Amino acid sequence: MEKLDSIIFYNIDKAIRAYRNYAQRQLKANGFSITIDQWLIIKAILENPGIIQNEIGDLVFKDNASVTRIIELLVKSEYIIRNSNPDDRRKTNLEITTTGKEIIKKIQNLVENNRKTALKGISKEEMKIMNAALLQISKNCLTSK
């Protein structure tokens, strides 16, 4: 019988969890009160103006309830503003505040350093192969019935 550590999907998940835990510890150690998920949602809104909540969930791999909860925390922290959509009252427009933009800018160097630490010892060629393989796995799963 195969061992867990010989299963690639187990190792992918383990690596992702280890990185997220490491990145969250680094944020806290450097005095930031924002979480990785909050950072992801702010980045998603910044990079996709006009994005709606359901699309944010798809982009950051979170369910709608989690996204709603995180957005509420971001509004309370004054990182984002929620405005009514003039064309559809059921929707809200999300806008990043100056404070939200500043926190993203302040965290950027830390994020880059976290990535360097996590990818230490992996060559550019290995990165290229790994990225291609992960994209192919995603494509296979999305296109298979």
Rank of each mutant, 00 (worst) to 15 (best):
R17I: 05
R17Y: 02
A18V: 02
A18E: 06
A18K: 10
R20A: 12
R20H: 07
R20L: 14
R25L: 02
Q26K: 06
Q26R: 12
Q26S: 07
L27W: 01
A29F: 05
N30G: 02
F32P: 04
F32S: 05
S33E: 10
I34V: 09
I36L: 12
D37H: 09
L40H: 11
I42P: 00
A44P: 04
A44L: 02
I45E: 00
I45W: 00
L46I: 03
P49S: 02
P49T: 04
P49H: 03
I51W: 01
I52W: 12
I52Y: 14
E55H: 03
E55Y: 05
I56C: 00
I56P: 00
G57E: 05
G57H: 02
G57F: 03
D58T: 03
L59F: 02
V60R: 01
F61N: 15
F61V: 11
K62N: 06
N64E: 10
N64I: 09
A65T: 08
A65V: 06
S66M: 03
T68C: 04
T68D: 06
I70E: 00
I70W: 00
I71H: 00
E72V: 07
E72N: 07
L73V: 02
L73P: 01
L74D: 00
K76L: 10
K76N: 14
K76H: 07
S77Y: 06
E78F: 07
Y79W: 13
I81R: 15
I81G: 05
I81S: 09
S84H: 08
S84N: 10
D87F: 14
D87M: 12
D88S: 08
K91E: 13
T97L: 03
T97H: 09
T97W: 01
T99R: 09
G100D: 00
G100R: 00
G100E: 01
K101C: 08
K101N: 15
K101E: 15
E102P: 01
I104R: 04
I104M: 15
I104L: 14
I104A: 13
K105S: 15
K106P: 03
K106N: 14
K106Y: 08
K106T: 06
Q108P: 02
N109Q: 15
N109P: 15
L110V: 06
E112C: 03
N113M: 15
N114A: 13
R115F: 14
K116E: 14
A118C: 14
A118N: 09
L119P: 08
K120E: 14
S123I: 04
S123K: 04
S123R: 08
K124Q: 13
E125N: 12
E126L: 14
M127K: 11
K128W: 07
K128Q: 10
M130H: 10
M130R: 15
M130W: 10
N131V: 10
N131R: 11
A132N: 13
A132P: 06
A132L: 11
A132G: 07
A133D: 10
L135E: 10
L135D: 08
Q136A: 13
S138V: 07
S138I: 13
C141V: 05
C141K: 11
T143E: 13
K145T: 08
